[in-house]
């Protein structure tokens, strides 16, 4: 079971720089740890994150081992028109999580 928390301002004025914050649940197992019996705990991480606005990619991040569990991302964009942000996380073992949020630009 996964969950995501998105924080996008509901309203902004044209030209405003807005902050987008995302948080998603994931164990981010590095693949470098061992069990007490010496077996390697297999890697299980998010490998990429993409944010699209009205279909156009505006932010992308690749993830690597040693990112903390439940990764938090904050980034900025300029509000130009009303529309919808789509967020997508992709990871090991077929992990996929999506979320979306809308903004009204006046």
């Amino acid at each position: 079971m996964t969950a995501a928390l998105i924080n996008v301002p509901k309203k902004a004025r044209n030209g405003d720089i807005i902050e987008i914050k995302t948080l998603t649940s994931h164990v981010m197992e590095t693949g470098y740890r061992h069990t007490p019996r010496g077996e390697v705990i297999p890697r299980d991480i998010i490998t990429s994150f993409t944010c699209r606005f009205e279909g156009d990619e505006i932010f992308h991040a690749d993830f690597f081992p040693a990112t903390a569990a439940n990764p938090f991302l904050s980034f900025f964009t300029t509000a130009t028109k009303s529309g919808k942000f789509d967020f997508e996380w992709i990871g090991d073992n077929g992990f996929s999580q999506t979320a979306s949020a809308s903004i009204t630009v006046e």
Partner: peptide, 18 residues
């Protein structure tokens, strides 16, 4: 203090589903 940065809130969302 901020519910969108508090990772514990992910547990609240998942708990509501349960």
């Amino acid at each position: 203090d901020d519910d969108t940065t508090n990772p514990g809130m992910l547990g609240v969302i998942e708990g509501e589903a349960l």
